[in-house]
Design a binder for these strands. Structure first.
Lengths: 327, 327
DNA sequence: CTGAAAGCGCTAACAG
DNA sequence: CTGTTAGCGCTTTCAG
């Protein structure tokens, strides 16, 4: 900038004015500055600019895994909102690891991002307090912050969706419905289990632990669990799977294709399978958009009380969930 | 930092030393500084640090769309390499829009990222020259830079994969093979068409324009094209689809399920469909890893001639590509 | 082992 | 309309 000023025979500040399109520069002077910029190949250093201005025009996004379609949809939505607001986004995957989540968040804070969207992996977010106090805005998405911390949060209606899915199966005549969920430590998994139990209770059906498995990571163990359930004296006639990955794994592990199935979370090609898979769809794009908009709202100085927004889920009947039990 | 220095009764520089774990600080002094840091809630400002040091420990990643599984796999791979090297990554989706690509790249450069991984949307990358001259490293991934610009590039073997897929169908007795590709302006689409033509030529089969459609964006038009082809006097008995999206759209649009089909690009659930879909698989993770490693290699000062790496594809027979033509 | 001074590249505040 | 000065928060250089 100094060089440009010297080359154009003006002061530093005038170059700054031209670069930032500030009003009140003689057009002849501006021309001269522009020419010098062109000649010297000058490009403004935004890092320096932001250090001086105190805001970085960037946000940090911590998700579980960009390669998961749910989170990549969310990412894209966040990115689109950020772009519209002239912000860049740092993205990081925590891999469901609390330490990694913390490292990422803190690294983003050290860069002084203006805001943070976090899908928490950990339970404890006390480490955020100093950053929040220092004026960083944060919105939690998909799962609430741990240890009862109060911040803006956008969730899906996990319990409600799960209840709807279970009710759907009950309505189609099923009385033995198995639930295959994620690790109970994960908020969404717990909520979905709750919804399942509520629906059973409301229908006067017993909650049978033999029909519930939580946190089955690999294909082989899932197949084992399914085999165990199907060998019960009173086996399940329907399955409710607790997330997209589990739904797909279940389809791969299932020895028979005649059980009714409702999957939590929609996935591409669910409609092309035979039978097509009935799902309780979440809306990752809306989740991302809502979280990002809430964040920018905060960043622009809004000081309303913290909000917790719950997004609805939607049952999409496609065939697998409408099969009657064997008569 | 000033405040901490004052509170601890030391000079600014000593605080800096402690914060950066530099050797040669009296442990008692260090204790005092650490205490002050704790008390005041001091957190180093990495933006300022990087302004001073001249490197930002961040890279920029421009892809077509994070929400596309191919690119989200690539993103994750890039992110993992970056993390291992202590770098953060700015991610942006160009949406196959050259202007947007340029804006993103330039925005990243203005932040003075240390390196760039670009899946180019545009044809012209002259705008990069000043940045490259200024010392930024860049690697192109999935597609080469436009206008013959010479930079490090990592590609898939598009032509070879397409050739293999076509040969596979020919080997299974097909002589009328349709090709459904992306817009020919996209490098990968052109290469894949070339591979298809080469295989036909090598087998002594005619190239029939009636059996080729490029750049069919929506479902309805794709269905129209398929109907047109199937109504030909000598209709195709097999299809080669030029990318993952097209494969899925074709499956949705296809009036019959008895044609042989090979899809370029693997996708989740391809194995669960009926028939399971034979594909030519690319390896987005390897693409990302390779590009990122090449980038960090450059960033660490390597000045070998620019490299162009071509990654192999792999034919995965699953059923749809092994069907014989109707006899 | 510790500190003072300079400066990374920019903008804010205030003169002229 | 243009310029001067100060300083964002840090590291580098050099001197104690």
């Amino acid at each position: 900038m100094n060089d440009v000023a010297a080359a154009a025979g003006v002061a530093l500040k005038t170059v700054s004015r031209v670069v930032n399109n500030e009003a009140g520069v003689n057009s002849a002077t501006a021309e001269r500055v522009l020419a010098a910029i062109e000649r010297l190949g000058y490009r403004r250093n935004d890092s320096a600019r932001m250090l001086r201005r105190g805001r970085t025009a960037s946000i940090g996004l911590v998700i579980e895994d960009v390669a998961d379609p749910f989170y990549s949809g969310l990412s894209r939505a966040v990115e689109d909102v950020a772009r519209r607001r002239g912000h860049l986004v740092f993205t990081g995957s925590s891999g469901e690891n609390a330490t990694r989540e913390r490292e990422l968040v803190l690294a983003f804070c050290a860069r002084r991002v203006d805001g943070l969207i976090i899908v928490p992996a950990g339970e404890d977010h006390d480490y955020l307090s100093p950053e929040l106090d220092a004026g960083i805005s944060a919105v939690f998405a998909d799962r609430p912050a741990g240890s009862g911390r109060i911040v803006d949060t956008v969730l899906c209606d996990n319990a409600g969706g799960s209840r709807t899915g279970t009710e759907h199966l009950i309505r189609h005549g099923h009385r033995r419905i198995a639930f295959l969920g994620d690790q109970p430590a994960i908020f969404t998994a717990g909520q979905r289990l709750t919804g399942y139990r509520e629906a059973l209770l409301a229908a006067g059906l017993p909650y049978d632990e033999d029909l519930v498995t939580m946190g089955v990571p690999d294909q082989a163990r899932l197949a084992g669990e399914l085999a165990r359930m199907l060998a019960l004296p009173d086996p399940p006639t329907a399955l409710l799977t607790g997330n997209g990955r589990t739904t797909v794994s279940t389809l791969r592990a299932l020895p028979r294709r005649d059980l009714a199935l409702v999957g939590f979370d929609d996935f591409e090609l669910a409609d092309l399978l035979d039978p097509a898979i009935t799902v309780i769809a979440q809306d990752p794009v809306r989740l991302g958009t809502t979280a990002a908009e809430l964040l920018f709202h905060r960043m622009s100085g809004n000081i309303d009380p913290y909000r917790q927004i719950e997004l609805p889920t939607r049952l999409i009947p496609r065939g697998s969930g409408e099969r009657p039990p064997p008569s």
